[in-house]
């Protein structure tokens, strides 16, 4: 922490990197500040117009601190709360950092740990966290189905997605278990990063531009099975029951951009 942050003020905004690590490091730092009577907010970007009485403290991500917080949450508050808070932290909600912090302050007071905190749905922070958890989980679950791989020159499977929340890493366990003996990559085109799985290996995330431009070029290749798939989607539809409204409700247009059957 910077030394100038040590002076007393009533409100502090901790600004951190937009990642699980960043947010949970801020929770760690914020905890002591709030214990000293300050009102803490956690933000993933610089506030545009901070109040006169608010001080803005940048926080540098620290793996050890973040892991300490995450371990406490999982051990003391249970898997359910852990999952809810992690999903909230990767969501696209601007207040997500503060939200995670508020829920934790409620769940932990002194030596008391409330494992059932997520049941307190009438509380606004808990309620919003629960909503975000569902939203993010739904998006992950949808991408389990909607990711479309394209085979590039017979050895690599390539997919492009554009999720609303930062869920790329959360797709890794599912797809690694599913296709362990394939080389596959999933590209998050909005955040410009790629999840890479080598045959029989472990997933890793890359952000360098060289890899990305190479991937973008190979995405234009044609895959023979796409036509078969398109034909299948056409012939499986019962014309007498045609219902584009329902189709769109279940499969919103934003997902279709990268799905071959709609191109």
């Amino acid at each position: 922490m910077n030394t100038e942050c040590e002076m007393t003020a009533r409100k502090a905004i901790l600004v951190c990197e937009d990642s699980l690590e960043g947010i949970f490091t801020s929770v760690y730092e914020g905890w002591t500040l709030e214990n000293h009577g300050e009102k803490v907010q956690i933000s993933v970007r610089e506030p545009d117009y901070p109040d006169f009485f608010t001080r803005v403290c940048p926080v540098t991500s620290d793996t050890q601190k973040a892991e300490k917080v995450l371990r406490t949450i999982r051990d003391k508050l249970g898997q359910r709360t852990y999952e809810a808070l992690c999903f909230t932290a990767v969501s696209c909600h601007p207040e997500k950092g503060t939200l995670v912090f508020r829920v934790l302050r409620q769940a932990i007071s002194g030596r008391r740990f409330d494992r059932r905190i997520m049941d307190n749905m009438a509380d606004p922070s808990v309620n919003l966290t629960a909503k975000l958890r569902i939203r993010v989980w739904h998006e992950i679950h949808r991408f389990y189905g909607f990711v479309r791989f394209r085979e590039i020159s017979g050895k690599v499977l390539l997919a492009k997605i554009r999720p609303e929340n930062d869920i790329l890493e959360m797709l890794a366990p599912h797809f690694s278990d599913r296709c362990p003996n394939e080389n596959w990559m999933i590209l998050d085109s909005g955040r410009q990063k790629v999840l890479l799985h080598p045959q029989g290996g472990v997933c890793s995330v890359y952000k360098d531009t060289g890899t990305l431009s190479q991937i973008n070029a190979s995405l234009c290749e044609k895959d023979l099975y796409e036509d078969l798939w398109k034909g299948f989607c056409r012939s499986i539809t019962i014309q007498e029951r045609k219902n584009p409204h329902l189709q769109q409700q279940l499969l919103p247009l934003k997902f279709r951009l990268n799905m071959h059957e709609f191109s």
Binding site: D177, T237, I238, N243, Q247, Q249
Partner: peptide, 28 residues
């Protein structure tokens, strides 16, 4: 069912919808 690492595939309890046909029915 988790994959055993020797082949391809797994299966999850809730099931997954992969697409939706023009009649609004899921293609899984």
């Amino acid at each position: 069912r988790k994959g055993d690492g020797t082949g391809i595939g797994n299966s999850i309890q809730a099931g997954i919808c992969h697409s939706f046909a023009g009649d609004g029915r899921c293609i899984s």
